[in-house]
């Protein structure tokens, strides 16, 4: 591997109508990292993810992928899974998975017919079995549980083989048991496909369990007379090697983390 970082964030700030949401973000992420992002509610972690996706543009600074500027709109090299609305409600499970192949093959209709369609259907069978949805392939997303929907969303995002996978609180709405299964699935896929993953989460334990690098977003400067003057930035940047995943970070960091995430507990 070259020493060039996969993703470089250079002095990025995001300002909405005079409200500074994020500022002074400086960051290099190595290829193959699983980078988890935690922080209090509305501290800009989802905004950061949306900038990585080009859904929003930084007000200052720039973001580089493999040394090149981000394209100005979402592209297939960055996959995305949202907490909700990640799969197409009007398509069945298998149609959701066939969709990207259909976009590739049929520029005009966006739809495959006959034997080509049958081939596309066969092509997703393995994926369906892998994510445990083979029995549910003819069902619509609203007929699936939350965990099944998110498995489908992840599988759909991975079909285009993105170099970078962005996850915006993907397991936030799931029950704890299902969440643990989903975390395992994610780790498996990450190891197998050697992608770079950015994952925003409310759950500090999830962040340390999954991440090879944990980013904590928080406001460090605060002006009581002008609360919008200062934005959040990265207050802790903790690289964890895989072997040390289970080790608990030092007490000072943990204390700070608890403080920063206090507001999130009811959500988790």
């Amino acid at each position: 591997m070259s020493t060039q970082p996969k993703v470089s964030v250079r002095n990025v700030a995001k300002i909405y109508d005079g409200t500074v949401v994020l500022e002074r973000l400086d960051l290099d992420i190595a290829a193959g990292a699983l980078c988890t992002i935690v922080g209090a509610s509305s501290c800009g972690k989802s905004t950061f993810l949306r900038m990585l996706l080009s859904q929003e543009v930084p007000s200052r600074g720039e973001i580089l992928i493999d040394g090149e500027k981000l394209p100005p709109e979402p592209t297939p090299d960055r996959g995305i899974v949202f907490q909700r609305y990640s799969v197409f409600p009007h398509l069945t499970v298998e149609e959701n998975l066939m969709l990207s192949a259909e976009f590739d093959a049929a520029p005009l209709t966006g739809r495959l017919f006959g034997s080509k369609r049958a081939a596309a259907r066969d092509a997703v069978t393995e994926t369906l079995e892998r994510i445990g949805l083979a029995q549910a392939r003819k069902r619509y997303p609203t007929q699936l549980s939350g965990g099944m929907q998110q498995r489908l969303a992840i599988a759909q995002a991975l079909l285009k083989k993105p170099k970078i996978l962005l996850l915006d609180e993907p397991f936030g709405a799931l029950d704890p048991g299902i969440r643990a299964d989903m975390q395992e699935l994610l780790i498996e896929l990450w190891k197998e496909l050697s992608m770079t993953i950015f994952m925003v989460t409310h759950d500090i334990h999830e962040a340390f369990k999954l991440g090879t690098r944990v980013l904590v977003f928080d406001k460090i400067r605060h002006d009581p007379d002008a609360p919008d003057r200062w934005g959040a930035t990265i207050t802790y940047d903790l690289p964890l090697d895989r072997a040390g995943v289970q080790t608990i970070p030092d007490a000072g960091a943990l204390f700070a983390l608890k403080n920063t995430t206090r507001g999130d507990v009811p959500h988790a």
Partner: peptide
Amino acid sequence: ELIIKAETLGASVW
């Protein structure tokens, strides 16, 4: 989210 998802799946506007 659905539109963005479609964009990341490589869809054109049409």
